[in-house]
Design a protein around this nucleic acid. Structure first.
Lengths: 160, 160
DNA sequence: TATGTCAGTTTTGTTTTAGAACTCAATAAG
DNA sequence: CTTATTGAGTTCTAAAACAAAACTGACATA
């Protein structure tokens, strides 16, 4: 399989990775969720080169993750804003942040703290089951072929 | 910034991406959570070339995500198994799967269905606040500098 | 008129990747 | 006791992606 074909696999991981899996793309999305919207702000904050940033933004727009909006101001600036599909990637970013917060933290502590406006407290993201609301662990999850599976996806064994 | 330096940033997203952000690595981890542990099984299922697979497995072992265990059998085979730190990446994979299940699904339906052994039902993963247990939305989260921040991380604006 | 900002594109080398073949050790088959 | 097979890579070459820097062009401000 070539890298540019993984979006065609019958696998939700592969399909999502084809959207967010290019180098720098996750750092761009991180900044989107922090409110960054302008080309030069991305470039300064991330330090990615301009050609690559232009390519990634273009692809995120083509995938429906970002939308290029003309800012009203007379200099006619553009903004890349998250669409609803883009905002739906928030759990992916939060899961990534949380792993870094717990497994790659220095003695100084976390780089960023997250506050939940609804309840007013600092929090960690927790993944729970939509049916019983209990926190999920890898060992408590099994997998079986769904209606969109190709005749092959068989390895639905246990985890770890 | 060069790609191989992002692990040194004071950002949990960048630090995590330096571990899981290389091409193919997320597909390898997906298969790990499905119980795949042998070199040739990864190679057949993913279709990645052998040199790249060898490189990615080596790096995941170096990062403490996988551990190379000698299988007891006399042919002396090796297995790459998830460590505790590797299993902690489960929410990342589940968040990625869920986005694909909801935003890149075909008319045929989902490729895989997930069952929660604890409650016995098919489920979707839901991210909630560790303090109030309410589902998280991007707009309800704000960010501020933590103790491990570098003096610069300022853009703690609103989302979207 | 000169200077600056924004959002790129072009150009030029350097890395990384894909694809195929090759190595090496330990069985397994004849 | 050779010969083949399997697992887990390594080596090699050509193609693709990437990094760094300079360049473009529209618009605005001094």
């Amino acid at each position: 399989m070539r890298w540019d074909e993984i979006g065609g696999e019958a696998c939700s991981v592969a399909r999502t990775v084809s959207v967010i899996g290019a180098r720098w793309t996750l750092l761009i999305l991180r900044d989107c969720f922090l409110g960054v919207r302008r080309f030069d702000d991305f470039q300064t904050r991330i330090g990615v080169t301009r050609p690559i940033l232009a390519d990634r933004l273009k692809k995120l727009v083509a995938e429906g993750i970002l939308a290029k909006c003309a800012d009203e101001e007379r200099p006619l600036r553009y903004e890349d804003r998250l669409t609803a599909a883009g905002r739906a990637l928030h759990p992916v970013i939060m899961a990534i942040v949380h792993w870094g917060d717990t497994h790659r933290v220095t003695r100084k502590g976390r780089p960023l703290l997250h506050t939940h406006k609804t309840c007013g407290h600092d929090f960690d993201p927790v993944m729970v089951c939509s049916h019983c609301a209990a926190p999920l662990s890898a060992r408590a999850v099994t997998v079986r072929a769904g209606p969109g599976a190709t005749p092959s996806m068989s390895t639905d064994q246990d985890q770890a």
